[in-house]
């Protein structure tokens, strides 16, 4: 079984601020790390490999330094890795990202299962996974909360839906996005880290892509445009209420209603 896990390097902290005057994004510190949600996808991939055999590959898209997350994945049990990087890919939105990723995946190899984390901590959209599946024309299931078993040409999983859990058989090749806490991610291993620190990785640039239309990548290939960023308006309220029982009960009730906790 060939498993691929899509991972991303994200800022080490979410504590970004917008400079009110200039509208420029201020980041605190230059630290970066693997998207925490991807750890669950990677863990799922490695567990599947341990149970059913096969290989786990990892792929990421980003600047050259993003290869750090590939090596981190090696120390958690991934076997090979590829980095998609090119200045032409800069400024990509969800569509352009999923297109670039799927082009990179095609170049990287054929996979039975592609695993993605539920979302990233920086973009926060949870959309790249399903869009990659669409670009690759393969079936997808999101919000997978449990893997039941793998059969010859399919995998059976539980999909978390609002009211119930659907048991789903999905045929290979397929893409799954897994929920947080599907498994507790393992810690990087020192032994594996030493063993894989010099491992070769594949690097794919624009010239490696099957689709050579420059207008489909990066900023040009992105239908959505960010017009401006601004700090959120704090809606933190602090009110102190006193009164008769009846008055207070009504006030709480109205507040619950206004905040849509009751209809």
């Amino acid at each position: 079984m060939k498993i691929l896990v899509c991972i991303k390097q994200v800022p080490g902290t979410n504590k970004v601020e917008v400079d009110e005057k200039t509208g420029v994004l201020k980041r605190n510190g230059a630290d970066s790390k693997m998207n925490p949600y991807d750890l669950y996808a990677l863990e799922t991939g490695v567990r599947l490999k341990e149970k059913y055999g096969g290989t786990v590959s990892v792929i990421t898209m980003g600047p050259p330094q993003a290869k750090a997350v590939l090596y981190e994945a090696f120390s958690m049990g991934a076997d090979e890795g590829a980095l998609i990087t090119d200045r032409k890919f800069g400024g990509a939105d969800v569509l352009a990202t999923s297109r670039t990723l799927s082009q990179g995946i095609k170049r990287f190899g054929d996979f039975d299962i592609i695993l993605c984390g539920l979302q990233t901590t920086d973009g926060d959209t949870a959309q790249v996974g399903p869009e990659v599946a669409e670009q690759l024309k393969i079936p997808s299931v999101c919000n997978v909360q449990r893997i039941e078993k793998v059969e010859k040409d399919n995998i059976i999983v539980d999909m978390d839906m609002p009211q119930d859990i659907e048991r789903i058989k999905i045929y290979f090749p397929c893409l799954l996005t897994v929920q947080k806490d599907i498994y507790q991610p393992r810690l990087p291993s020192y032994l594996k880290q030493k063993e894989t620190s010099k491992k070769d990785i594949d690097v794919f640039t624009f010239s490696d892509m099957e689709d050579q239309d420059e207008n489909k990548y990066g900023l040009n290939g992105s239908p959505t445009h960010v017009q401006r960023i601004f700090p959120p308006v704090s809606d933190k309220v602090q009110q102190h209420w006193q009164g008769t029982t009846e008055e207070l009960a009504v006030k709480i009730y109205e507040t619950l209603k206004e905040k849509k906790f009751i209809a």
Binding site: G12, K33, R186, L187, P188, S189, Y190, L191
Partner: peptide, 17 residues
């Protein structure tokens, strides 16, 4: 640690870990 019989050394290098 390895000489003393440790199976591995697991690295918690991020806040979450």
């Amino acid at each position: 640690c390895l000489e003393q019989g440790a199976a591995d050394i697991l690295i918690a290098d991020t806040e979450e870990r």
